[in-house]
């Protein structure tokens, strides 16, 4: 299985655009595709791929429930002392839980000498499964008000891996990742065979691309770049990629026509023969690069 993560430091540089067009193109070529939308805060891929969700499952994170009858409260206080996230506190002599602060580590369960801690669970959101034009589609939708995306991303990736392993042929798995360089991105990128960085030829785009490159290097992940909206800014992103020896797999020309098509949820490769050509070459280059990495 080839797992391709599509990422960027800056938001709005075209991650989802690349992901959905590549997925659709791989399907056209007769390859099996599993698509995982790992942006659980603001997922967008389904808007472009005409997805029918067939299953939605709540995803929960472990949070503690304290059995008042067995808990000794301030006489013991071991769980309160150990909780690194201050999700457990002593109030009026009793242990109180703040589930929204809990990171689900389960240390309190292990540490309680009286077996007074069991699992309650906080709803993080849902993991959904479906199909879109003959590809398996997985995604997550974080509950509005929930702060922690990381465990939900993990759940989406686990579901994608199970789906990928379930089929008869080995698929290409595409992960559409969230923006940024913090912990949700780490979770989304880990174990990728290849990372495709979507970048924008602007000062903001260049600055955040450097951060993203720093991150994939730190994680030791093979990577290449695509310049989106090529021509809208300057050449500094291209120069940087050359200086840093990062393969530039494609440049998608900037046009208002493309921007309009995207704004309506259309696939870019269906806008013009030129754009279809760009994506075909990108798909070809990507398979080559990812294959090279897999065999090395």
């Amino acid at each position: 299985m080839t797992k391709i993560a599509i990422a960027s430091g800056k938001g709005g540089t075209g991650k989802t655009t690349l992901a959905v067009n590549l997925a659709a193109l791989f399907r056209e070529q007769g390859r099996r595709v599993v698509f995982a939308d790992c942006d659980v805060e603001e997922p967008n891929a389904h808007l472009f791929l005409d997805v029918t969700w067939s299953q939605e499952q709540p995803a929960t994170l472990f949070t503690p429930h304290i059995d008042e009858n067995t808990c000794l409260g301030e006489e013991c206080g071991e769980c309160v002392r150990l909780c690194a996230f201050k999700a457990l506190i002593l109030m009026a002599g009793e242990v109180m839980v703040f589930p929204e602060l809990c990171h689900g580590c389960t240390l309190c369960v292990k540490a309680c000498p009286h077996d007074a801690v069991s699992e309650a669970g906080r709803e993080l959101g849902i993991v959904r499964r479906g199909a879109a034009s003959n590809m398996d589609m997985l995604g997550g939708l974080m509950r509005v008000g929930e702060a922690m995306a990381t465990p939900l991303i993990r759940a989406v990736k686990d579901a994608a891996e199970a789906t990928a392993a379930g089929g008869s042929t080995d698929p290409i798995t595409i992960w559409d990742c969230p923006p940024g360089t913090a912990c949700p991105v780490i979770e989304a990128l880990s174990d990728a065979d290849y990372v495709l960085l979507a970048c924008e030829p602007t000062p903001f785009g260049l600055h955040d691309l450097k951060l993203a490159v720093g991150l994939v290097r730190e994680l030791g992940l093979p990577h290449g770049a695509v310049i989106n909206r090529d021509g809208m800014g300057d050449d500094r992103v291209k120069q940087y990629l050359t200086e840093e020896n990062i393969p530039l797999l494609a440049a998608i020309p900037h046009s208002l026509e493309a921007a309009r098509a995207c704004s309506e949820g259309k696939l870019l490769m269906e806008v013009s023969d030129e754009l279809r050509g760009v994506f075909s070459e990108l798909a070809h280059a990507l398979i080559g690069e990812a294959g090279k990495e897999a065999s090395s």
């Binding site: 974080m142 995306a149 949700p184």
Partner: peptide, 10 residues
Amino acid sequence: GPPGIGCPVI
């Protein structure tokens, strides 16, 4: 602010 709806946005 940052993008998204998670921890840093909250």
